[in-house]
């Protein structure tokens, strides 16, 4: 009971140190120093093109894929620089999950969408795998809607809001600690948006969450901290 009443800790999980990212020599992110706290939702706000997505992709090193992108500075997670030599990208991205602006379910069954990660990372099979899939789908508030044709229905056959929650479940199934969300509601209708917002608030109690949004009201509704980028 006491634990439940304790206010959120302010332990820093992620700290960026003079983080800059350039595409083709053009700076998209200039010496950003930011902190993100444990079990807290931080919203990132800023005009379009100011580098919000770039910042998120710097936190799970997804920018590594873009041949023109050059990253400078440090990103410390629990004090360790993820850009240091010898960092295992798979391990990093298992810790730091991400959902994208446009829902991107894989063209396979709902079950397979969620099971792929834990199966490949943790070698889970059978009952254990089914449990982790159910757990992830429950956390993403999708279980009741899909439990009847979990293995038959394609992830692509779901509605937009359901697809985004499927992507959330897929991310949660690999047991991350940090969740990055890049305008997760921008492709959704108001009802789905509200569902995802409620989910984010819920997830913020157990995860370090960073949400990009261009909507100040939304930031106020879902986050304890807000970062402005310009």
């Amino acid at each position: 009971m006491i634990a439940a009443m304790t206010p959120t800790t302010t332990k820093t999980v992620i700290q960026t140190v003079d983080l800059s990212v350039a595409y083709n020599g053009k700076l998209a992110l200039k010496a950003v120093n930011a902190q993100f706290y444990e079990n807290t939702v931080t919203a990132l706000i800023g005009p379009s093109g100011c580098g919000k997505s770039t910042l998120l992709r710097a936190l799970n090193r997804l920018n590594d894929r873009i041949p023109d992108a050059v990253t400078q500075g440090k990103v410390l997670i629990d004090g360790k620089d993820i850009y240091a030599r010898g960092v295992n990208l798979t391990r990093l991205r298992r810790e730091v999950g991400m959902v994208f602006q446009k829902p991107n379910p894989f063209p396979m069954s709902i079950f397979e969408n969620v099971a792929l990660g834990p199966r490949l990372h943790y070698g889970l099979r059978g009952r254990a795998l089914e449990e982790i899939v159910e757990d992830a789908l429950r956390k993403a508030a999708l279980w009741d809607e899909v439990k009847d044709d979990l293995k038959k229905k394609s992830g692509l056959a779901l509605s937009g809001g359901q697809q985004q929650r499927l992507c959330l479940a897929r991310m949660l199934a690999v047991q991350p600690r940090i969740l990055l969300m890049d305008e997760p509601c921008s492709a959704l209708n108001p009802i789905s948006t509200q569902e995802i917002e409620e989910l984010i608030v819920e997830l913020g109690k157990q995860y370090t969450v960073i949400v990009v949004t261009h909507n100040l009201q939304q930031a106020a509704r879902i986050s304890q901290y807000t970062g402005f980028l310009m």
Partner: peptide
Amino acid sequence: PEGIINGGLALGLSRWQTLWRLALP
């Protein structure tokens, strides 16, 4: 689609797993 590749990589799949499990199918 880029979204599928990024989705796989963001889950921590290796380049090889992304190719074998997602892109090739």
